[in-house]
Computed example of a mutant assay.
Amino acid sequence: MEDILRPIYQERTSHPNTLGVLLIDHNEKSSPITDTFDIVLFLIVKEAEEPVYVKHYTYKEHKAALHIVTEAKLREWILLGSNRKIIDWLFSGKVLFDRNEYVQNLKLELRDFPFYGRKIKMGLEFAKLIRRYVDGKDFFESKHYLDAYNHIVHSLHHLARLSVIENGFHPEVTVWSQVKQIEPEIYKLYEELVTSEENLEKRLELLFLASEFLIHSKTAIASEHLTSIVEQKEQWSFQELSNHEEIQYYSVDLSMLIEFLTEKGLIEIVDKETKGQGIYHRYYRVPKKL
Rank of each mutant, 00 (worst) to 15 (best):
E183D: 15
E183N: 14
E183V: 12
E183L: 09
P184C: 08
P184F: 08
P184S: 11
E185G: 11
E185D: 10
E185A: 13
E185Y: 07
I186A: 03
I186S: 03
I186F: 07
I186M: 02
I186H: 04
I186Y: 02
I186Q: 02
Y187V: 07
Y187W: 13
Y187T: 05
K188E: 15
K188T: 12
K188D: 12
L189V: 04
L189N: 07
L189F: 10
L189R: 08
L189A: 06
L189H: 05
Y190D: 03
Y190N: 14
Y190T: 02
E191R: 12
E192T: 11
E192N: 15
E192D: 15
E192Y: 15
E192C: 07
E192A: 14
E192H: 13
E192M: 14
L193H: 01
V194F: 04
V194N: 00
V194K: 05
V194D: 00
V194W: 00
T195M: 10
T195C: 03
T195Y: 12
T195W: 01
T195V: 09
S196T: 01
S196N: 03
S196D: 02
S196Y: 01
S196F: 04
S196V: 02
S196I: 02
E197I: 04
E197H: 07
E197F: 06
E197N: 08
E198Q: 09
E198K: 14
E198G: 00
E198R: 11
E198W: 08
N199P: 09
N199V: 12
N199I: 12
N199E: 10
N199Y: 05
N199K: 09
L200F: 07
L200E: 00
L200W: 03
L200I: 10
L200P: 03
L200Q: 00
L200A: 05
E201K: 13
E201S: 11
E201C: 01
K202C: 01
K202G: 00
K202P: 03
K202E: 13
K202M: 11
K202R: 13
R203V: 08
R203A: 04
L204A: 09
L204P: 06
L204T: 06
E205I: 00
E205D: 12
E205C: 01
L206C: 02
L207Y: 00
L207E: 09
L207M: 13
L207S: 06
L207P: 00
L207F: 00
F208P: 08
F208E: 03
F208R: 05
L209S: 10
L209M: 10
L209P: 00
A210E: 13
S211Y: 10
S211R: 03
E212L: 05
E212M: 07
E212Q: 11
E212A: 10
E212H: 10
F213G: 09
F213Q: 15
F213Y: 14
L214W: 08
L214I: 12
L214H: 10
L214Y: 01
L214N: 04
L214M: 13
L214E: 12
I215A: 10
I215H: 01
I215G: 07
H216Q: 13
H216C: 08
H216K: 15
S217I: 11
S217V: 11
S217K: 15
S217D: 14
S217G: 06
